[in-house]
Design a protein around this nucleic acid. Sequence first.
DNA 1: CGATGATTGAATCGCATGTTTGACATTGCC
DNA 2: GGCAATGTCAAACATGCGATTCAATCATCG
Lengths: 231, 231
Amino acid sequence: MRAINFPESGSKRKLLDAAEHLFADKGFEAVSVRDITALAKTNVAAVNYHFGSREALLGMVMSRYMVPINEERLARLETVDRKWSGKAAPVEEIIDAFVRPLATQVRKSDLSERLFYKLTGRIFAEQADGMPPQIEEQLRQIIDRFTRSFAKALPLVAPEDLTWRIHFLVGGMIYQLTHQDILHRLSSGASGTPTMEATLSRFIRFAAAGLREGTEPMEPAPKGPQATFDF
Amino acid sequence: MRAINFPESGSKRKLLDAAEHLFADKGFEAVSVRDITALAKTNVAAVNYHFGSREALLGMVMSRYMVPINEERLARLETVDRKWSGKAAPVEEIIDAFVRPLATQVRKSDLSERLFYKLTGRIFAEQADGMPPQIEEQLRQIIDRFTRSFAKALPLVAPEDLTWRIHFLVGGMIYQLTHQDILHRLSSGASGTPTMEATLSRFIRFAAAGLREGTEPMEPAPKGPQATFDF
DNA sequence: CGATGATTGAATCGCATGTTTGACATTGCC
DNA sequence: GGCAATGTCAAACATGCGATTCAATCATCG
């Protein structure tokens, strides 16, 4: 499907690394070509020589970063599908296949945990238009495949509802990644930044409950008339 | 607490309106002073004359936009608290107090639905640092107050867990607002943009289930060994 | 009216941006 | 060695930016 060669060394690689760090830290718009070449210790012209333009470099940073994550997502989903072939898989496992690659790929990266997650968030939050076409295509495929698996796991959720709930899921995760620090700054009882592992399992529980909503075998209302809340 | 007068007319008002439209549509960084003054049909110098700087104008746009929303949030929460004084309110009502003001304030605005929500999202997603101090303070107060109400409504959820779940909630909503169009473009079975009312009630159900997760009176596992899922 | 202070307008400042240029250095291959 | 191809470099270019200047205009009120 793909045929990109990400350079292993040389100043092209140095530029990609520097750009990745800076984009993750400050955001795509806030980083100039000169910032990048300064950090990479190359000449300003190097960016345009190697990539043609600043935008092309930006796209290549996103690709190099996203492609392995998305490939692992699909691989993990396939494993889950095989394991539960035909039967409905637990939604937790599907969500896990979607978010876990973030935790595994972070270790293969030069980026710190914090920067790695910020970059993920930024790719969605800032650059969602202007994404390289092949990345957008890959994403479309992923949402498609995961939606199919969720649909099988949650036959009682109407497809229309399911689409929305998946959006809420993706959004909650993205936002969480990008804005961990800010949200914690706004919460007065802010406990220190926790490990990614803990965040992921918390998130999976939260999202799984949201996805399953309404499919439980009739829970007795624990308190008050919440069954009659009027929407 | 506050003592801002938002101008009712004149070119100061025209600048605020123009800036609001442009910021919502293109994002804060992508809009220049010249773009704003062109749309407002004023001179370039007007921005610096009336606001001192581009940044100050940006802050005033955010304030004029966010303050009424946040005030309505607090007012609604207070109503809910009074209604259930002492007792635990249904989480749906608390979430509603948080998200409903978006639907009511959109009608008082000059902005289209789409631009209105995009602006909300952008204030969080792009400008979360650099927010005017008084807005940040207001937000902190809101998260505080809502957290307290949620805690009372969900006594079985550990405070630490609750903080996280609220983050997921806020993030899911923000992201949804900002990226409705993109997510729908990525979902192949994209049905047309639905009304805000429908989105809100879908979201409230999703988030309420996530918040309540683990507090239900022991649901019989509907399928598979999901109780032993290993995190 | 005329004076005073608020507002506008055209021009310009200094600066940072992405990109291009052309000379120079390095590399790899015959 | 010779000679392309490839890569590097300092310098400059064109553009757009936020901000400022200062004279012209306007509104308000004595």
